[in-house]
Design a protein around this nucleic acid. Sequence first.
DNA 1: ACGCGTAACGAGAATCGTTTTCATTCTCGG
DNA 2: CCGAGAATGAAAACGATTCTCGTTACGCGT
Lengths: 145, 145
Amino acid sequence: MAEADVNEEVAALLRRADQRYTTGRRRVVDVLEHSGGPITITQILAADESLSQSSVYRNLTILEEVGAVTRIVTGDDFTRYELAEHLTEHHHHLICSDCGEVTDFSLDDSTESMLDSAFHQAAKANGFTATAHRLDLFGTCGNCA
Amino acid sequence: MAEADVNEEVAALLRRADQRYTTGRRRVVDVLEHSGGPITITQILAADESLSQSSVYRNLTILEEVGAVTRIVTGDDFTRYELAEHLTEHHHHLICSDCGEVTDFSLDDSTESMLDSAFHQAAKANGFTATAHRLDLFGTCGNCA
DNA sequence: ACGCGTAACGAGAATCGTTTTCATTCTCGG
DNA sequence: CCGAGAATGAAAACGATTCTCGTTACGCGT
């Protein structure tokens, strides 16, 4: 999705929730858009020095509530954030157990659709209403190998 | 796996790492074995009042290091633990976004093997060595619906 | 059996990522 | 242009987890 479209879409999501698309929020979205994968608060603050920690935390929470951003928990001590999937592409994560770095990857369409139906069936069998799934690979990245 | 076998296997894992299978550790394993899914430290402490918080944290860390226990991060504020897969069965998780409860589910073998090969391929394409994967469904459980 | 050295324990203190507070600064409708 | 409600930022509070340290229990050699 083009940058302008992302901004427009995020603005719409915020407006729908009676929230403003302030400068700080736009800056956070910009940082997320230009980093090729989920990043930590620390990385966001480093990428744009004009941001203050508490506002970034608060705004990420709001952006997540309106569906513009997704929170990623990897197992190391830092929560990571990325733009929501409908603003990017459907993808999954390769998580380096060594350095904690997270990078995106995709599966081909046939695998994905097969997964979807398997999930749907499994959820149904457990009286569960599934709204999302998480699919991550753990291992060692090229750098750490 | 039968309870006696689990204890034996855990004992072996600990011995291999020059660790002792103490009463406290066995009690933690027992609690994990009798709860049908990943549980929090709080739940473990509630399930066996003889356990002390600091020791449970420490022992879970050790049990994870020797490969007897797996740490599960769901997104709420609590880390959960379960017995490692080779002590149970290969399975995935249904995570209730509402109450945080986690329950196990399985996919059929053909789906699993297809997933495995897709993962292998995706990891390879990214210069990544995959050692494990995580596959969770988020949604609403029967109780919360 | 008896000690000894070391591992494990338990209660509380410390840590640190995250959340909250609160006074100040923006922003938008009227 | 004003005023009310949002959003901000710095600093304090919070809380799950980890660490500290004195005590207890285990395994092993004698």
